[in-house]
């Protein structure tokens, strides 16, 4: 069993090597994409900066606090896009009949889809997020304790799981219909846009939805309290791991979709 896990991991690394080599076949295009990723996310950042020139705090959060929140959500989102892009572009895979190919190979479907696409260009957005994060940290006077470092790591992990779950649901929908799925972007791109502010800024109703519905708040607003020193409750460090439950539900939906595909063949 353990050997099989390592085997899967080394196969995944093999996929990633091929992805990177493929991307490097078009170096100019690759660097332009990285640059455009950087510039695009820069506009969001400027929006934030202008906002805080007029208002000095939003619902009790200062500029540096919001920058921290924004950069962490950006990191979550770009890491998820980097590693789980195969599910984001799954509609094309079904349309081109490539999922049949996945099914005639003796490996898990998920491993093969993850491997089919590793989006290195998202490194642009990730880099920018790291820079903003560093700037935010230097202005927010965070004293780094082991607990806070752990909180940060669990936020990143939880965020990746959350977005992965959303991509899984999106891919699951592809088994039912290939049209009109753009509405799913509200939950991924939208989360990235609105997630630059801690969710509690949007009021109690949104907070409830983002806790018990799609648990965005678990990976930003709650653990952020601990990070910013607004609360001492160490339990907040574990909140992001609640996304595991969310991911399991999404995975069940995905399995349901796969079963439907194998019984309908289209």
């Amino acid at each position: 069993m353990k050997k099989r896990k390592w085997d899967a991991l080394s196969l995944y690394m093999h996929y990633i090597r091929l992805s990177i080599r493929s991307a490097m076949e078009y170096k100019a295009s690759f660097f332009l994409q990285v640059a455009s990723q950087l510039l695009l996310s820069m506009t969001t950042l400027m929006g934030l900066a202008f906002m805080f020139m007029r208002f000095h705090s939003v619902a009790g959060y200062g500029y540096a606090d919001v920058l921290l929140c924004y950069s962490i959500v950006m990191m979550q989102y770009s890491l998820a896009e980097m590693f789980v892009r195969g599910f984001d572009t799954f509609a094309g895979m079904v349309r081109r009949g490539e999922f049949d190919r996945v099914l005639v190979r003796p490996r898990s479907e998920i491993l093969q889809i993850l491997g089919s696409r590793f989006e290195l260009t998202r490194i642009g957005r990730l880099l920018q997020a790291v820079v903003v994060f560093a700037y935010g940290v230097s202005h927010a006077d965070i004293f780094w304790t082991p607990l806070r470092i752990m909180t940060l790591l669990s936020m990143l992990l939880g965020g990746i799981l959350l977005f992965s779950g959303l991509y899984l649901v999106y891919a699951g929908f592809c088994f039912f219909t290939l049209d009109g799925l753009e509405f799913m972007n509200i939950f991924t791109d939208g989360a990235k846009e609105y997630g630059k502010y801690p969710i509690d800024v949007y009021g109690e109703k949104m907070m409830k939805f983002a806790t018990f519905g799609i648990p965005y708040a678990l990976v930003q607003a709650y653990p952020l309290q601990l990070l910013l020193g607004r609360s001492d409750c160490p339990l907040y460090a574990l909140f992001p791991l609640g996304t595991v439950a969310f991911l399991m539900v999404c995975h069940a939906f995905w399995r349901f979709g796969v079963r439907r595909y194998t019984s309908s063949g289209s």
Binding site: D7, S10, L11, H14, Y15, L18, R21, S22, E25, Y26, R96, G97, E98, R101, R105, P106, R107, Q112
Partner: peptide, 22 residues
Amino acid sequence: RSQLWWDIPVIDSFELLRDIYS
């Protein structure tokens, strides 16, 4: 429908298949 990676040498796809089928 091709099962080979479009942009890289054929042998690279073959080696991936070697690992997929162990």
